[in-house]
Design a protein around this nucleic acid. Structure first.
Lengths: 217, 217
DNA sequence: AAGTGCTTCGGGAAATTTGCCCGAATATGC
DNA sequence: GCATATTCGGGCAAATTTCCCGAAGCACTT
């Protein structure tokens, strides 16, 4: 392994878009020390390719059709704890970032990042360090200022129930009727939930509820 | 222009992800006859770059933060009807494809396409032909066969675009700014969309947009 | 037993949005 | 040329949201 490191860093590329993979490959290969030893376009193939090639770093987009990229990360880290996984995606939601790190990711950079920053991140995780792009750091920093973990942890039981019903399409009157509350109280909860979660619009609230599994769409 | 064509095809790359742009650039440049003369990461810059470089083909992702890519297509085609625009995005919803062609796009390929297919599409639109990737053709074919009108069929293009942005979490002010409309107009559209679709709450609107594939959650 | 903190429940008032009317400019179709 | 659909916004009353506030019930601590 140390010999391999001396010769460079082997990379497994995982992304569901062929041309994006090809783009990565060219960018990374042009660095000299980075070698793409395999590619995959889904979570299952990613794990198979990892077992076959045992790369130093897995660079993967976790928003792929089919199985979850997070599951792939867990599998990879479970098989070889010395494996390094750098998540590379367009999403920048705090919950997703935390999920990725909890799943065992070593780094998280967004596709908005400069290629140089991505390359730097690959070298960082290869050295065993944690890496993340500036925008991700900002998102997490903001999040950390609210003393809670998951977005839902900061909500009380009543608030969660109201959020669930609201995100499922219920009107304020219906919720009030269901829970035997005054319309005014439901409105107040609605507002409270928005401020607590930081959602600016009802649409963001629905998306939040959906990503937290509170409601299915 | 014929001389230029003989020497190759000049391309303006528009995508909000730097590394993706760099990837395209390398893939296209490796073809020999394709030359990336400029890049842009948003709709406004795209139009400016088009005016400055007058490229043969504009390859653009229409899902960018800020102003609509569709608007950029309209502007570009309005300025120079001989311009060719190839939309290159990860979305594959029939409505979006139709909107793009109505806006003046000459081609539409998804990022799931093989790089070779993308290159072929660029050459096609450069020759003035219409181009689309196989998956897009299938989506449109399916659409034309299904007698059941989607809920979205009763909405105009503008309404769909506003619904998409709204369901994606944009505020009324942001949408108005993106599309250069007055806040009042966006509010009116919002109301119109609700009545046309029968949605009673914003949450139902978001769910509708999601089930129609207008937005991902 | 009193204090602290949290959740739950609502009132009040200003700001904003909704709901629904309208007219006008511009395609688009026949 | 005429009808029709789409796009764009003004106006205005009604409704809702926003943001403040207090209070009651509970659990947990010292």
């Amino acid at each position: 392994m140390t010999e391999l490191d001396a010769k460079g860093i082997s990379v497994l590329l995982v992304d569901d878009h062929p041309i994006v993979r090809q783009g990565y490959r060219r960018v990374l290969e042009s660095q000299g020390d980075l070698h793409v030893v395999a590619e995959a376009d889904n979570a299952a193939d990613a794990y198979a390719a990892f077992k076959a090639h045992d790369p130093d770093v897995v660079v993967m987009d976790i928003s792929m059709p089919g199985a979850s990229g997070l599951e792939a990360i867990r599998n990879i880290r479970a098989r070889n704890p010395r494996a390094r996984v750098l998540v590379f995606t367009m999403h920048n939601e705090a919950v997703l970032v935390k999920s990725a790190f909890n799943a065992g990711a070593n780094g998280f950079v967004t596709k908005s990042s400069e290629p140089s920053a991505v390359v730097r991140a690959i070298r960082s995780v290869a050295r065993g360090e944690r890496a993340m792009s500036d925008d991700i750091a900002h998102v997490l920093a903001e999040e950390s200022l609210s003393p809670t973990g998951s977005v839902l942890d900061q909500l009380g039981e009543r608030e969660i129930e109201i959020l669930r019903q609201f995100a499922s399409g219920a009107t304020t009157e219906q919720i009030a009727s269901h829970l035997n509350l005054s319309v005014k109280t439901v409105q107040n909860y609605h507002y409270l939930i928005k401020t607590k979660t930081g959602a600016r619009t009802d649409a963001q609230l629905v998306r939040l509820a959906a990503t937290c599994g509170l409601t299915k769409i």
